[in-house]
């Protein structure tokens, strides 16, 4: 078996053992359920499909929660092993550093994916049982599941980069929290501030591009604009028309946010000494 799979399996088993998988799944499921059923009650008034409402509320929640979970899972992937003294031994094994990174990443990615799909999927099933979902809502919901996983992986890759750049676990933890604050909170506030300060002077051509430079914004745009029925509820109809990003571009941006930090982390890891 490839060393990547051996490492991935171990990482996933560790996740099962230390209850990361169970904890993250339950947390996501509980919140998704709450949103689904709270979202259903007012839905009749605005004639929206309940599942489409669920997509809007779950995606707003996901932007805060999934990056946090991903950063917490991933920040000590390398630096933690290094501090415990396990990494030194592993580096003498017939495994390349790239394989160590990819294997661990694959394991952590599986934990995140399982938690997202099971947690949100349960809420989707519950919504289906209430019978208020049409085919497009289902597509939107599937897109939500897929893109939530991608968002998680993007922040996992950022966590790995933090983990390989610093020498101490506590520094990596601080960096992870910093990354969350920057991408999830500060970035949007800064963009808004920029708009207000320049009185809209920042060109309409620059502003949308800036949204692609944040995985959380790419995710938000994708989920709120890709499907017509969701657009109507989210009030993004106008923005979708002005921001010229097709779902493909937004998903590519998310993929880029996975590949580039991870590739950088591997390159840094390969160059440094044990």
């Amino acid at each position: 078996m490839s060393p990547i799979l051996v490492l991935a399996e171990k990482e996933f088993r560790d996740g099962l053992r230390n209850k990361w998988v169970a904890g993250a799944t339950l947390l996501l499921a509980a919140l998704a359920f709450a949103l689904t059923f709270l979202g259903s009650s007012p839905a009749g008034l605005v004639e929206a499909k309940p599942l489409a409402v669920t997509v809007v509320s779950i995606s707003s929640l996901t932007i805060f929660l999934i990056p946090l979970i991903a950063l917490l899972i991933g920040y000590d992937a390398i630096v933690g092993e290094s501090e415990r003294g396990c990494l030194l031994l592993m580096l003498t094994y017939p495994v390349s550093r790239g394989q160590i990174m990819l294997g661990k990443f694959l394991g952590h990615a599986t934990i995140l994916t399982v938690a997202t799909l099971v947690g949100y999927g349960a809420a989707g099933l519950a919504a289906a049982m209430t019978g208020n979902a049409d085919a497009e809502s289902w597509r939107a919901f599937s897109a939500l599941l897929g893109s939530s996983v991608l968002l998680g992986l993007a922040f996992l890759a950022l966590a790995y980069l933090a983990s390989v750049l610093v020498a101490e676990r506590s520094t990596a933890a601080g960096l992870a929290v910093g990354l969350w604050l920057i991408f999830v909170i500060v970035y949007d506030l800064a963009l808004m501030g920029l708009l207000v300060a320049s009185k809209g002077g920042v060109g309409a051509d620059v502003f949308p591009a800036l949204l692609l430079l944040n995985p959380a914004d790419a995710y938000r745009l994708f989920n709120l604009t890709a499907f017509e029925n969701v657009r109507q509820i989210s009030g993004m109809g106008g923005l979708a028309a002005s921001a010229h990003f097709s779902p493909t571009i937004l998903l590519t941006a998310l993929l880029g946010w996975i590949v580039i930090p991870l590739a950088t982390a591997i390159a840094v890891f390969q160059r440094r000494e044990a």
Binding site: G85, C86, L89, T92, Y93, P94, V95, S96
Partner: peptide, 18 residues
Amino acid sequence: GVDFRAKLGFLPENVAFH
């Protein structure tokens, strides 16, 4: 590369496991 390390055995000082 990897082939070289397949021929090694190492016990570090203060060995740590999970």
